[in-house]
Computed example of a mutant assay.
Amino acid sequence: MKLTDILSKDHIIADLRSRTKRGVMEELCQSLASTHPDLEPGRLMEVLIERERLGSTGIGDGIAIPHGKTDKVGELMLAFGRSLAGVDFDSLDAKPAHLFFLVVAPENSAGVHLKALARISRLLKSTAVRRELLEAADAIEIYEIVAAQDEEF
């Protein structure tokens, strides 16, 4: 599975407006819902908040990967957002998050959900890739960086 198989340029927000954890998740939910009418942003937020109660999806190094499962989607969905200012996401290293991947999976899809999370983690493990994503001019350039990395691994 490649990230570009599930990430559309339409679901990349190069400059998140929100400065809060909840706000970032809401922006990303709205992005997905804009092209998926069955996906209700409020219900998706409930799923994400429930997941966050188990532990923050802010994994450190400026990265957060909020994720959850819902019966309102039939396939894995992905959105990306970037905050140059950074957002307190209750990250493990207590530093602000700048790069956000929102992963939404069908209710009964453990395997594909975990593969996506692992692929995102591998992509963002590289300091150079994180820097490129932060320095990208716009959503198209962000998508191209992800696509180039998809070819690498």
Rank of each mutant, 00 (worst) to 15 (best):
K115R: 15
L32T: 10
L92Q: 01
E151M: 11
L48N: 03
F101A: 02
G86D: 14
P66F: 04
R17L: 10
A147C: 09
E107I: 05
L124N: 04
T127Y: 00
G55L: 13
M25T: 03
K125N: 15
E26K: 03
I12A: 06
I120S: 03
A85W: 14
L114T: 11
L124K: 04
G58I: 14
D88E: 15
S18K: 11
E40M: 05
L102Y: 05
T70F: 13
E50F: 00
A14E: 15
A33Q: 09
A118H: 10
G23T: 12
T57H: 13
K2F: 09
R131K: 10
E151K: 05
P96Y: 06
A85T: 13
F153I: 13
E135Q: 13
A64S: 14
F153C: 03
G86N: 12
H36E: 14
V129C: 02
T4Q: 05
I142T: 04
G60M: 06
E75P: 01
M1R: 02
A85P: 03
S34H: 15
A79L: 08
Y143W: 15
L7P: 08
H36P: 00
D38H: 10
I120P: 06
A118L: 11
L99K: 03
H36I: 12
L114I: 14
I12M: 05
D88F: 13
V104M: 04
I12G: 01
T57K: 11
I120K: 04
G74K: 11
D93C: 01
L124C: 04
L44K: 07
E52C: 03
G23D: 10
S34R: 15
I49D: 08
G55K: 04
L99S: 09
G55R: 01
L134I: 03
A105K: 01
E26L: 12
P66R: 05
E151P: 02
G74N: 11
N108D: 15
E75C: 05
E46N: 06
G68Q: 06
A110Y: 11
V87I: 15
K69D: 13
A136H: 06
M1P: 04
G58V: 14
V24G: 00
A116Q: 11
V24A: 12
R53V: 01
S8P: 00
V146Y: 13
D138S: 02
A33M: 10
L99N: 10
C29P: 02
A137Y: 13
N108W: 07
L54K: 01
A94H: 14
K9W: 01
E46K: 02
E132W: 01
K9P: 09
